[in-house]
Design a protein around this nucleic acid. Structure first.
Lengths: 371, 371
DNA sequence: CTATATATGCTCGCATAGAGCATAATTCGC
DNA sequence: GCGAATTATGCTCTATGCGAGCATATATAG
């Protein structure tokens, strides 16, 4: 594992910081033998910079959209801002600040996604400017939901459907063509490139689980698993770009395939977006977060369309109402909406306290006292 | 202040190479008009130090245990080590390194939990030593599962049942006494302390949802929600400690109550542990992670006991087998175990590819083509 | 008035989870 | 060696939930 010497200590506690820069704090942290196992000394790890990455989502008609920005090198990416510990008490404060200052988007639900710290993830930009290999920018990814696709005042910012980046995730109009036409052949080739039978079987099992092949079901919330499998199989542009930048051999397979698998993003932003998609899709099932994406009044059909946009497949209309109304998540108003044609739909609003829970288990719990 | 946490699965990959110091990277990041929305220039945020916090879990008989360490000031806490970007390519690499070096624990499943960056979470120590409020240590919390409670060589490290810290989470022997005796009265007092009716209703709704009161179900995975509600209601020692340290008024209520609500931990470690408990409990339902906590061969009853230890309530034996066997998660071996009394149980092992999915939805999806 | 389109109410059947009975295979006390 | 105690394991019963679809209500377009 990594030369150098061993250092850390393993101790509990509160950060002993105080009147020191973070660098000093870190050094102190490792020098002090705070009990536990610690007996090693550590010269002091280099500090890192923290950036806040935001996946800001809205649902516009039947398109789930994400706020995108264009970076200096022309790549599309997610907007982000620096986190300044001196000015922000929490990550979320920092995030809301720069988002609301630089865009007119009003954020509703905000939740931390994941913290990305892999060396090299910020590669392209870093390489261009050259520098110290020990540097590290840690990105804390956040998911934020907004009710309206407010026009963004920034020049190169824009709302895009997330299916521009993940065309295989949209099953609303049947099985995505790109799956059969491009992705499956690509994976098949990847299986064949395996050096041994075990690796090959492993790859097949992984893809089958992620993409719901065989008798396995398509699980919409596994968007990240799918993207990562495609990345490793060389089916997305980022895979080729990163391996080239790192001086490694290309991933193999047809270099033209990635052109058909959706728009790529700079850095690892498409991965972050995949994480966000998976999270929203999963969370939708056990928390009423859809309403953060809806206007104050809506019809059940528009609500259904929003859910469909997110999960990527169609729902059964009557059953959808049955669930939503039965769960007490919405309240009917006196108003109705009259649009082009058909019977006017009742307008609903989110229930005052939609904090109930659904969430299906597969654990046979005991209700009675006896076991 | 203490926002909602919760993250998800993950797995990192990807490498490249970065250049320049973190401080420079950060400055460059903010100065450079990376398009997007950025037009603000930022003087260059102070860098922060990153610590890796580990919640290392095992199941010992019917106790879910967590590896604890004792800090200099005597508080119990989670073990942690610094993250050195110069030596570690990824967070997980760094984590595994110091864990495996300083303990003899062999980690199985590892997953990022949440990144904690709130100012003041390290409050006590920082205040004691006095100092710069701008210094910041960001903690990346990790969940790690191990199959065996290996003896730890560190002096002050020990395995403890997580129910020592969360006695109200264990329903295996009926409703936890502490709930009725201490927690409910404590919350009732908290409701009464609300200054207005709206606040009061909000508090009641929140507690009802978290603790499953009224007709709401107890959701075992909401451990964090419960802890946070108790923290705000002044029902845990950390609440009093933190508010005192910050020079704020005490949370109110009976200062003796926290003595009855389980062991406290230093810093915000009990919160991190609550996050971990919620995560394991939730993940258990849709991924076969239990097997990372089991020996290679086990009986179905021991597997059931492990699950019960985690979720905190008892399961129906026959139905448990039906599910586990039916889902193809385990394979029967030829061996049987003979213990004290009763019919010998067949020994099972985890299925070769337990990658299927369970996961109950509450979304009425369409199977046929028609909507 | 007719065709069409959407909203909304209601029922049917199957799969599944919760619950519990019955039987099998051991050890233990005597 | 025998009955009691204990644990394992197979099987059935039933309520519920969900996928599915029929039927009816209420609007617009022409």
């Amino acid at each position: 594992m990594h030369g150098a010497h061993r250092t850390d200590r393993y101790d509990t506690t509160r950060r002993l910081t105080a009147r020191k820069t973070a660098r000093n704090a870190c050094a102190a942290m490792s020098k002090r033998p705070i009990r536990t196992t610690g007996k090693t000394t550590h010269a002091g790890a280099a500090p890192v910079a923290v950036a806040l990455n935001a996946v800001i989502l809205v649902v516009d008609e039947d398109a789930p959209k994400v706020l995108c920005a264009r970076s200096a090198d022309g790549a599309i990416g997610l907007p982000y801002g620096p986190f300044d510990p001196a000015r922000h008490r929490t990550f979320e404060t920092g995030l809301r600040e720069w988002v609301e200052r630089q865009t007119s988007v009003r954020l509703g639900f905000v939740e931390q996604l994941y913290t990305f710290g892999d060396k090299g993830r910020e590669a392209p930009a870093a390489l261009i400017e050259g520098g110290d290999a020990s540097a590290r920018v840690v990105s804390v990814g956040y998911l934020a939901l907004a009710a309206e696709a407010a026009p963004v005042n920034a020049a190169d910012a824009q709302w895009r459907s997330w299916y521009d980046f993940f065309p295989w995730e949209d099953w609303r109009r049947g099985a995505p063509q790109v799956l059969e036409a491009v992705i499956e052949p690509g994976f098949t080739a990847w299986f064949r490139r395996a050096t041994d039978a075990a690796t090959r079987a492993q790859r097949e099992a992984r893809v089958a689980a992620a993409f719901g092949m065989g008798d396995l079901p398509w699980e919409e919330e596994r968007a990240l698993d799918r993207y990562e499998a495609m990345y490793e199989a060389g089916l997305v542009a980022e895979s080729w770009r990163d391996r080239t930048a790192a001086g490694l051999a290309p991933p193999g397979g047809d270099p033209d395939l990635p052109r058909a698998t959706g728009l790529s993003m700079g850095s690892d932003h498409r991965r972050i977006l995949a994480t966000a998609i998976g999270r929203v899709r999963g969370k939708l099932k056990y928390r009423p977060i859809v309403f953060d994406l809806m206007p104050s009044r809506f019809t059940l059909l528009s609500l259904q369309r929003a859910v469909e946009a997110i999960v990527g497949f169609n729902l059964h209309k009557q059953n959808f109402r049955r669930h939503v109304e039965g769960a007490g998540l919405v309240e009917k108003t006196e108003l109705t909406e009259r649009q082009t044609s058909g019977r006017p739909a009742a307008l609903f609003k989110a229930a005052a306290m939609p904090d109930k829970a659904a969430g299906g288990l597969s654990i046979p719990r005991v209700r009675t006292a006896v076991r």
